[in-house]
């Protein structure tokens, strides 16, 4: 549900467009890294209440694997990659070129590979946003988390809650249907970053 007025809806459309362009760069980088075809889809930009963020696409009480990138530069917030454990294991198998080991838990080396993937994809998105808006944005060191979806999301939303009770989600789905890999990207800007981004995207259009 988008509660913004017409001029802001246009600005939100600009944000979606910037993410779509970032997705193209990220898709190319990830294809090279994983030597696989991946489909990137930016399905929309939404402003949602906190309780909907916590249940966004994933049940609140199911463990998920997440890579969390804190935004650095001229803005605050987070870029979050979310996937079920099975997708994380499959990404690990591909990146390490190992055979199927479905019972293997994620270990330190696999986590580092997944974090690096998040870093590369996150950089593509943030570079595109920075180029389009004129606002310096870059990813901080990635953090890997495996825990209940809502538990992690509410920690991320604490900063946002100081100024709002709604969050912005740029819903990006990355899929490799043949191998069952699927993950989502959530963009959680805070501290006025969204308004500055929208203004910057409009000025640089």
């Amino acid at each position: 549900m988008n509660t913004r007025g017409p001029e802001n809806r246009e600005a939100m459309a600009n944000l979606q467009k910037a993410f779509e362009q970032g997705a193209q760069g990220a898709q190319d980088a990830l294809r090279k890294m994983m030597k696989r075809d991946l489909e990137f889809t930016v399905s929309g930009v939404q402003e949602v209440p906190f309780d909907q963020v916590c249940n966004f696409r994933y049940p609140a009480d199911v463990p998920v694997a997440m890579i969390v990138l804190r935004l650095l530069g001229a803005g605050e917030g987070y870029l979050v990659f979310v996937m079920f454990e099975e997708s994380a294991k499959k990404v690990n198998q591909i990146l390490w070129e190992e055979g199927p080991k479905s019972s293997e838990v994620l270990n330190l080396s696999s986590i580092s590979a997944i974090k690096e993937m998040g870093n590369i994809v996150g950089s593509c998105f943030l570079n595109r946003l920075a180029d389009s808006s004129g606002i310096e944005l870059r990813p901080g060191e990635p953090m890997f988390v495996y825990d209940l979806m809502e538990a992690v999301m509410e920690a991320l939303l604490i900063e946002q809650s100081l100024s709002s009770d709604r969050a912005i989600i740029v819903d990006t789905i990355i899929k490799n249907p043949q191998e069952g890999i699927s993950f989502d990207i959530l963009f959680l800007p805070s501290g006025g970053l969204l308004d500055r981004l929208l203004e910057g995207l409009t000025q640089h259009e």
Binding site: F50, A60, E154, L157
Partner: peptide, 24 residues
């Protein structure tokens, strides 16, 4: 009953109330 962030639930009826907590 599922209780979300900011929720308060009181009852005199039998129920199972679930909620997920991180730093909350």
């Amino acid at each position: 009953v599922n209780l979300g962030i900011g929720g308060i639930f009181v009852t005199a009826e039998p129920a199972e109330v679930s909620t997920v907590l991180g730093s909350c």
